[in-house]
Design a protein around this nucleic acid. Structure first.
Lengths: 194, 194
DNA sequence: TAACTCCGTGAACAATCGTTCAAGAAGAAA
DNA sequence: TTTCTTCTTGAACGATTGTTCACGGAGTTA
């Protein structure tokens, strides 16, 4: 085998994504990343081109993980709507329970933090968030086809509604330390979906 | 009159708050601030002590403005619940319409961006967000006393619900460029309040 | 006018930022 | 062993970070 790649690319990106997710784009320095993913600047720049390049891959990785989780929920749950509930509940669980580095969605954090000074990163985050919403809508349509939700419901609007609930709940959890009521708040949100 | 203070403190803090609100704490450099508030480093540090010190005042200023807006809405509207609707609608309106530097609430942005590395700023933001929620609850109680909402409703939970809606809606607007549907989404959220 | 007080100035500080690149290490091919 | 290829290393770059402080200017008091 020719010179083997020392670092597993996927593994490295995953570690980087976790650090970016925790600290945000600007507060994460290349020195921080070097320590966290155990690579030297030369290797990082050879592999990813720039801090922005690595961040793009991190955003993609984060989204792919979420999509995979969604598919996993669909395989497990007894119906599309239950899959959606399972997905959202497992995403919203406190970080200390599922190892996530922040309560807030990484894409939302990024969209909130960045400005036009990083236009392409901002655009990518918006695009990925939109992709997640469309994924939700796809499952909602499946639920509609199976009669779980009314045929007259606007699945696009329902997907928007759920997206807003999840964004709001996660940011709210970040802002409040004691959140025993979260489970009920999630149920409240879902009771609106018919 | 002894040497008059050249810069109006309130005005300076308001300008600084707008820049911090737009760019976030980390992405706003002292050089950016110097240009934006037209003060030199010496004067800034004499008046505020540090970047963190100025940011604290900016957070307070932002919150005070929101509280003032809430009171103004109560004076204008025909009932407590209508005042709340008016307040939330005027907050959620797109930044290009009301001059706000970002769609996202400054306190939420801060809570989302910062980590324990700026523990006191994080704590202050959480505290101010909580204060806003309590303000909402106060108005809800007034609405309850006037029979606008059911006497059996849990105003604490309703305030939480509204807080989550506003947080979610604003972040959602930041992430989506075309948002003609926002007014309807706001009405949807309020239709749950009984 | 001279001395004093106060605020504002901006050059300069050490530290850190994102990034580059010449050099080294290690296995493959000859 | 020698050459070649490929990946890694870490010192070093100029730029920018948050912050400091000796200085100048302007109004007040004597």
């Amino acid at each position: 085998m020719v010179n083997q790649i020392k670092h597993d690319r996927e593994e490295v990106i995953k570690k980087a994504a976790n650090l970016f997710w925790e600290k945000g784009f600007h507060a994460t320095s290349m020195r921080n990343l070097q320590d966290h993913i155990d690579m030297r600047p030369g290797s990082i720049y050879a592999a990813f081109g720039s801090k922005e390049g690595l961040f793009k891959e991190a955003l993609q990785c984060y989204t792919n993980t979420n999509i995979a989780l969604m598919q996993q929920c669909e395989a497990q749950a007894s119906s599309p709507l239950n899959a959606l509930k399972l997905f959202i509940k497992s995403i919203i669980k406190r970080p200390q329970e599922n190892g996530a580095p922040s309560e807030v969605c990484m894409l939302v954090k990024t969209v909130s933090e960045l400005t036009d000074e990083n236009a392409d990163l901002l655009a990518l985050s918006k695009q990925l968030l939109n992709m997640m919403e469309q994924g939700i809508e796809t499952v909602l349509k499946r639920a509609q086809a199976q009669g779980e939700i009314s045929a007259s419901s606007d699945t696009r609007r329902l997907a928007q509604f759920l997206q807003i609930q999840v964004i709001g709940l996660r940011a709210y959890m970040r802002a409040n330390d004691d959140n025993d009521c979260i489970d009920q708040l999630i149920d409240d949100a879902f009771s609106c979906i018919q």
